[in-house]
Amino acid sequence: MASAPRSRHGDSDDRGDAAPVISLRGAAVSYGERVVWRGLELDVHPGEFLAVLGPNGSGKTSLVRALLGRQPLSAGTLTVLGRPAHKGGRHIGYVPQQAVLSAQAPVRARELVRFGIDGHRFWPRPRTGAVRRRVDEILEAVGASEYADVPVGLLSGGERQRVRVGQALATDPRILLCDEPLLSLDLHHQRAVTELVDARRRSHGTAVVFVTHEINPILGLADRVLYLARGGHRIGTPEEVLTSASLSRLYGTHVDVVRVHGRVLVVGAPDETAAPPHHASPGTHEWDGVRS
């Protein structure tokens, strides 16, 4: 087994040879005859921040579903915290994609956070002082105390994602899975959400798997990148993966990676949702907070 990758940030180097919290060997996901990705060999260690990139249809959400125990592999093996992935695993926090909620939805922010503590159970639960204090501490930690009693459907996108991060942190996670948590957020709220996630990683050694179309808000945080495309993948540091040579080999066509004022722009990558891979036409992916 490969040793733990060294952090780019200097605060996780004590991971040493700690056992990985996620391990995939020869892993593949297919839907019928369509191979989403295969041959995936990946270890994620405590305190590591892994960014998962790629165009629509490349299997990013399928990876998250597999880690959550909701998507079986077509081949290979997957262990999470030393055991096969299974639904409802403890110590796994999950921040989902933004969902449209009715303004009449009765669930309040504090109740959503509480679900992270005692599960999505709607029968009567004891309202102990310890649980109330824990919920209040989490809401304060994510900056959501002022709207703790507001129905979630009335919150802005940024406010809602703060609460979702709080819900995920309530599980005291050793792994934090974030599936496109920055979609539809402005730059201010993107920064706030990424800072919350990174703060947990730094303070508790929580491993972060962060699926995103928008690499630039987390470019300075990611230790490694898993780039999925056309059934293939590349794994390495952002400097190793986000290059013209690396992505051109992955796509099998010329791709330019341009860095402008600290932002990354990928030009010429096929759009995998527009046509089958061998008919895909070149496109542009702007990794600057704009959907690719």
Rank of each mutant, 00 (worst) to 15 (best):
L177E: 02
L176E: 01
V29G: 02
G82Q: 13
T171D: 01
R160Q: 12
D271M: 11
R6W: 07
V264F: 07
R160L: 15
R263W: 02
T284A: 12
Y227I: 09
S248K: 01
E286C: 13
G262R: 04
L242M: 13
E146Y: 09
R114S: 14
V241M: 10
T237Y: 10
N216Y: 01
R108A: 08
R291P: 09
P276V: 11
L226Q: 03
G119M: 06
P124F: 06
M1I: 13
V163I: 15
R121Q: 11
P46S: 08
H285G: 05
W287C: 11
R125G: 03
G205H: 04
G88R: 05
V107T: 15
V225P: 02
A4C: 15
E180V: 02
S281E: 14
A144R: 00
S184F: 13
G232V: 05
P96T: 07
Q161C: 05
R108M: 11
R114F: 04
L185Q: 07
T171Y: 03
R230A: 14
V197D: 04
G268I: 08
I22A: 04
V209K: 03
S62M: 12
R6Y: 06
L183E: 14
V150N: 02
A274H: 05
L53W: 03
P20A: 08
D179C: 04
D149V: 05
L169N: 01
I175P: 00
I215D: 01
S203T: 14
L155K: 01
L78G: 01
H213W: 07
P151C: 10
A192D: 12
G16K: 07
D118L: 10
R291T: 15
G232N: 10
V52K: 01
V255K: 02
G10M: 12
V135M: 02
D271L: 13
L73V: 11
A192Q: 13
R201F: 06
V44C: 03
I117Y: 03
R83A: 14
H120R: 12
L247W: 04
D271C: 06
A245F: 05
G10H: 12
G54E: 06
R164S: 05
D186A: 09
S7G: 14
G116R: 02
R127L: 13
V290Y: 00
R259C: 06
L196Q: 07
D149I: 07
L50W: 12
P217M: 04
L228H: 10
A105K: 09
R234Y: 10
H278F: 12
V260L: 15
A27M: 06
R110C: 09
G47W: 05
D288Q: 08
L187V: 09
T171M: 11
H279W: 14
D13H: 15
R70C: 11
G231V: 00
R38H: 13
G76A: 08
T61N: 14
V264M: 07
A168D: 08
A148T: 03
W123T: 06
V152N: 00
A19Q: 13
V260M: 13
H233P: 05
A130M: 12
S3D: 11
E48G: 02
T243N: 07
V107R: 01
